[in-house]
Design a binder for these strands. Structure first.
Length: 281
DNA sequence: ATCCTATCCTGTAGGC
DNA sequence: TGCCTACAGGATAGGA
């Protein structure tokens, strides 16, 4: 989304902003329209799942899509009727940018750019999965002693920022790691495979402009291209694209997890031979 | 400190 | 058709 907005709205000047008045994850400040009016979008940034719309004058619009949020760009006439639109930014050249969010778990918050890093939403985030992709050794160190399942571990934004429920399942499938394993139990070789899968999955998904299995759309209203490339997510009962075994769905931390029981075996496939230490007792 | 659950909200799909 | 439950891309407050 950051890249798409960079290509569409950077450099445009805001003429007017209107709000729905409905509460999102938190109330949207009623002062937002007044504070945004007349400002030019200087650039687009991102940390984890937070989008940063940098404006001239030292302000940044911090935004999060939650589960169902969308930014929609209209170069000229926007649609007559569209439900669940909570902010409409009209630019001086006639283009518009709308924030639509059916479930209202999203976020729109205006902050001073200089204080951005201290904003509570960003301060607790771990290194960004794309900007600072973790090495296997980094992940291994972060997971030392961690008892949650590796799937839940990957979703924890305080350790690595930016991975969500779809990509967590896809990453573990590509890495050949069972999502039920406790994070602290993975070996260095397995974390290396996870680290490689983080880069591979995110790189490919971003290149294809995101993942649509249902409602997600690009800023131009098109489905993202990665949905067709999903190997396990939302494919319960369907054959694994690698080996044909039916994909399983389980629930971890109230979130669905999808995995292939053959490609992601419960125990480590290599190192079957017992270590030399066994005979010493 | 760490881990886990319930909760916020609306829409849709599937079973009966 | 209508009614019911389960589930959907996330973060977080609060209890164990």
């Amino acid at each position: 989304m950051r890249r798409m907005l960079e290509a569409t709205v950077r450099g445009r000047t805001i003429r007017a902003v209107t709000l729905s008045g409905l509460r999102l994850r938190e109330p949207v400040a009623p002062s937002l329209p007044r504070r945004l009016r007349g400002r030019t979008i200087a650039g687009l940034g991102r940390t984890g799942k937070y989008l940063l719309v940098d404006l001239d004058g030292g302000l940044t619009l911090l935004s999060h899509l939650g589960m169902s949020g969308r930014w929609l760009f209209f170069p000229a006439a926007p649609p007559d009727a569209l439900e669940h639109v909570h902010a409409r930014l009209a630019f001086t050249d006639g283009a518009q940018l709308w924030f639509q969010d059916t479930r209202r778990f999203g976020l729109l918050r205006l902050v001073r750019t200089a204080a951005l890093a201290r904003d509570p939403a960003l301060a607790a985030l771990g290194p960004d999965a794309v900007a600072e992709p973790p090495t296997g050794a980094t992940l291994h160190g972060l997971a030392r002693g961690a008892t949650p399942a590796v799937k839940s571990f990957l979703l924890d934004q305080r350790r690595i920022a930016g991975l969500g429920n779809i990509y967590a399942s896809e990453i573990l499938h590509r890495a050949g790691v069972d999502p039920r394993r406790r994070a602290g139990s993975l070996g260095a070789d397995e974390w290396e495979r996870v680290a490689g899968a983080v880069r591979a999955v995110l790189g490919e998904a971003i290149g294809l402009m995101g993942t649509t299995f249902s409602m997600y759309r690009t800023v131009w209203g098109e489905p993202g291209g990665f949905g067709e490339r999903l190997r396990v997510y939302d494919r319960a009962g369907a054959p694994c694209r690698a080996c044909g075994t039916p994909v399983r769905r389980i629930v971890q931390g109230q979130r669905s997890t999808f995995y292939c029981p053959a490609c992601q075996p419960r125990s480590r496939p290599r190192g079957r031979a017992r270590s030399a230490g066994t005979g010493t007792s």
